[in-house]
Write a protein that binds this DNA or RNA. Sequence first.
DNA 1: CGCTAGTCTGTAATCGTTCTTATTTAAGAG
DNA 2: CTCTTAAATAAGAACGATTACAGACTAGCG
Lengths: 139, 139
Amino acid sequence: MTPVARPFSHAIDRLRAVWLRPTRQRLALAKLLFDGCDRHISAEQLHGAALAANIRVSLATVYNTLHQFTEAGLLREIVVDAGRSYFDTNVSLHHHYFYEKSGQLVDLSGDMIHMEGIPLHSPDGRRVSRVDVIVRVDG
Amino acid sequence: MTPVARPFSHAIDRLRAVWLRPTRQRLALAKLLFDGCDRHISAEQLHGAALAANIRVSLATVYNTLHQFTEAGLLREIVVDAGRSYFDTNVSLHHHYFYEKSGQLVDLSGDMIHMEGIPLHSPDGRRVSRVDVIVRVDG
DNA sequence: CGCTAGTCTGTAATCGTTCTTATTTAAGAG
DNA sequence: CTCTTAAATAAGAACGATTACAGACTAGCG
Ligand SMILES: [Mn+2]
Ligand SMILES: [Mn+2]
Ligand SMILES: [Zn+2]
Ligand SMILES: [Zn+2]
């Protein structure tokens, strides 16, 4: 049995594992992001959440951190609309509903859609890094 | 047998069919867009192509026209990256390779990928308007 | 400690897109 | 053809998410 979570050291370990210094800002953002439930969050939203939790952090650092986490594989960036991008704390293989009107992004369980014929390489032999499926809903 | 194309009246007919007045600008842009080969083009690129062809048209009109054509079903808008969107002259069912580095978008033949389990409605019953599949290539 | 590379902040710059308003034009009526 | 009117266009300002920058701060280490 896994013991009760020790969120602080969890976050530290997570950062150490990907060679990012566990600074005050990165720890605080990691705790907000990886608190248990998966989420799709924009930089502005995370910045707002941080301020609401009395964590002083600049928007620039939120952007830097989100990109560093993404590069390290702790997050996945999802682009749904020109000029809006979300960061997904669920990095397992899954796809999304996107509600055009509200801008909401919702998970589609990973095994709901089966795809065949997805190439592993591009026509000129380059490796496919990711396949994004977005199911767009008008309302 | 269809006679040899008369591109000018072609463009006029195409616009009339979707209730858009065949103005000088819309006709010129339609001719650039629908000249035979399918393409994925940005607003800036189309504007550049127009200027290169000695067609005086403002960037604002290019944006308006692209959106009107999209709404009319003559184009399909594809978002690949925050802050960049492409317009596809191929509105038939197909998917795309996206080359992250060069920003190039390439068609994947429509019958190459088979998908099963794509929902027709969202969890709360709204109609799915479109499913976008983007195969991302690093190089 | 005290050094140094790495990080953070606040703000300015960027850039694709959208908005605004005056001007021009398509198209139908007479 | 001329007149009228609604629709469309041009030009540039405004917008908003993101990125760049330069100076201040700090984690990690000897
Ligand atoms: Mn990004
Ligand atoms: Mn658009
Ligand atoms: Zn997700
Ligand atoms: Zn295409």
